[in-house]
Design a protein around this nucleic acid. Structure first.
Lengths: 214, 214
DNA sequence: ACCATCATGGTACGTTCGTATCACGAAAAT
DNA sequence: ATTTTCGTGATACGAACGTACCATGATGGT
């Protein structure tokens, strides 16, 4: 047999080529031939590793989501070493803003997938439910953690606040994507809301501490 | 000449057919023939009233945006007769949530357009900047108005809050669209944030009134 | 050394899409 | 009454797309 290539690695390369061309020309209008050319392989090869386009798209979505998860985890880990919950939360939310070109590509393609999944039942809407739910749980946990550390007021509904922050950052992200809003202003708005949550926490928990512990 | 048909009316009918089929099968994968069949006319007719597909898509976007604007204005007008700024703002924000099927279609197709506009330069990104900017101005104005009526604390940055509310509602809308979130919970989150803005206003402006006016 | 199998290339096929072309009836203009 | 222009239909065309098919080196197993 020939050189016994690593299939998974090859699939990854092709999937990344798919994401690249989708970031340039849009997920619509990306064809097998485009992916093949971008990956530097023949059309047959793309067919070989992914038998059908649908499977290619599905794998591309999984790869995209996995990459985002890893990037976010790395960013959170990097921020979580020294700083407190606020920094971790900020890192988590800022990662989901299309600030640099790489992040821009991710958000564009991911949003394209999300829109596609509404009408194309083949593209499971599962990732678009599970992943946000996981993020929501994580963020709610971090907020609760901050609440325990008296950085956030005890009467704050961490679940609702987590939902709101994620939806806010998603909305700001699309605003950046379509060119309506600058990344800087989006970051400012996001920080403003974080300030609100954490500032209120300081004030009220300080008052609460006085009342309770003298 | 034959029956001298109203061009604009015909274009509207076809554009609405476009939106309908786009809501069912997605904006991608909507072809001239599909639109023609949905509108109950021949392919040639679609070509006749819109020479090219690009022009059809553009007109469809304009029609969609105009319809949304009219619907929002009507809803705001209906709410603005009796109630205060809070009700008006709530009406404005709730209209931009895909609660019923009609609104769902609008949001899906509009979002599809937005995603398209990022890569297809033909589809002007203009509507996706101008319209949100207008909504932002309107909402900021309403908040300022509420601030003048002492319903919102004077130290609230109305512009930032308007941006945040709109981004929040956009993000919640996508969450509903992909099936991650129920319309009810989205409405609850939105109301929660409105409560926060207006509740803080009552408390602080009451305190401020005592301090200033005794 | 042989052979079965893996990796890869080239290419053809059927479909669908947007667009262009040809054709014709019908009514306003003259 | 004729002519010209408008509205509409049917259909053809070229391109692009996803997929299928055939071919062929290369190499690990025996």
């Amino acid at each position: 047999m020939p050189k016994r290539v690593d299939h998974e690695e090859r699939r990854t390369e092709i999937a990344e080529a798919l994401v690249r061309v989708a970031g340039r020309r849009g997920l619509h209008g990306v064809g097998m031939r485009d992916v093949a050319a971008e990956a530097g392989v023949s059309l047959r090869l793309v067919q070989y590793y992914f038998e059908t386009k649908e499977k290619l798209l599905l794998y591309g979505l999984e790869h995209l989501a996995a990459g985002f998860g890893a990037r976010t985890a790395a960013r959170v880990r990097a921020a979580g070493d020294a700083a407190g919950p606020r920094a971790v939360i900020e890192a988590l939310l800022l990662e989901s803003l299309p600030t640099d070109k790489e992040s821009r590509t991710f958000h564009l393609v991911y949003t394209s997938y999300a829109v596609l999944s509404v009408t194309d039942e083949a593209l499971a809407a599962q990732p678009f439910i599970e992943n946000p739910d996981a993020a929501e749980d994580a963020l709610a946990g971090l907020l609760r953690q901050a609440q325990d550390a008296r950085l956030v007021a005890p009467d704050v509904d961490t679940r609702t606040e987590a939902i709101g922050l994620l939806a806010l950052s998603a909305g700001l992200g699309t605003g950046i994507l379509v060119g309506q809003r600058s990344p800087e202003s989006a970051v400012a708005v996001l920080r403003h809301h974080l300030d609100r949550i954490f500032r209120d926490g300081e004030m009220r928990s300080a008052a609460g501490t006085e009342g309770r512990a003298g």
